[in-house]
């Protein structure tokens, strides 16, 4: 099957891509990292977080969904977009309750890593300090909604990778929560620790019990290398 090649411009550089790819997929292949949170390589794009927003011909578009087209002009690494991303990261930090120093996901958390990536020293807006419920009813997996950024990865993973339908959203706007498809709690669902959904959360909101703090500080995923380093490495090594 022959694949149609298209060429587009990404931050002033000509990039070749295959028709049907999203801008993010094409950028990844070219070794250019576009920040993302709700996207996961094994899942269909959700388009929930908008961190991956780029400018396409001068208009904002989610790069994890927008397909490449011949001749489009895409901006990614601009001051405006960097500020936008830092703002989105800040909003996640103030809308949840993220206690990084004591969190099991610290060092492995993609939200925290994006804080480092966007050079956020601290969120500058006041914290909202909302009240969220912890669901520890399941013997092996727990939900700490303080840390949930509503990316929907667990929902998609449960549906598309596990063939279950354990998670869903409830509520709207600031009242939106991750919830489970059961009368009361996670313990009543057919969730198992071996489900892909159990390890797909970008933060520490959905965690397998008794596995925290195993990796020493200094050796965790984002201790040494920034998020996106693996993608950018491709470009550097040619």
């Amino acid at each position: 099957m022959s694949q149609e090649t298209v060429t587009f411009t990404l931050d002033g550089v000509k990039v070749k891509a295959t028709k049907g790819q999203t801008i993010m997929e094409a950028a990844d292949a070219a070794g250019i990292y576009i920040p993302r949170l709700c996207w996961h390589k094994d899942l269909p794009s959700g388009g929930n977080c908008r961190i991956c927003t780029v400018m396409v011909n001068g208009r904002p578009a989610g790069s994890c969904l927008f397909p490449v087209e011949d001749g489009i002009v895409v901006e990614n690494n601009t001051k405006q977009l960097k500020d936008h991303r830092c703002q989105v990261v800040e909003m996640h930090f103030i809308e949840g309750n993220h206690y990084c120093p004591s969190c099991e996901a610290s060092g492995e958390c993609e939200l925290q890593a994006l804080g480092y990536y966007t050079q956020m020293l601290t969120p500058t807006s006041p914290y909202l300090r909302p009240k969220y419920e912890v669901d520890a009813s399941h013997p092996d997996v727990y939900i700490d909604r303080d840390r949930c950024i509503l990316c929907g990865r667990c929902i998609r993973a449960s549906e598309f990778l596990d063939g279950k339908c354990v998670f869903s959203f409830e509520g709207r706007g600031i009242h939106k929560r991750i919830s489970v498809n059961a009368e009361h709690n996670l313990g009543e669902t057919n969730m198992e620790a071996s489900d892909r959904a159990a390890t797909i959360c970008p933060t520490g909101a959905l965690m397998i019990k008794r596995t925290g703090y195993r990796i020493p500080v200094g050796k965790r995923r984002f201790d040494i290398h920034p998020i996106g380093w693996d993608i950018e490495k491709k470009k550097k090594s040619g």
């Binding site: 930090f93 309750n97 990084c100 120093p101 601290t122 909302p130 009240k131």
Partner: peptide, 18 residues
């Protein structure tokens, strides 16, 4: 200058906030 997570962000002391 604020130094440390307790001074600049949510940290252990602020766990009482909810």
């Amino acid at each position: 200058i604020g130094i440390g997570s307790c001074a600049v962000a949510n940290s252990v002391p602020s766990m009482r906030n909810t």
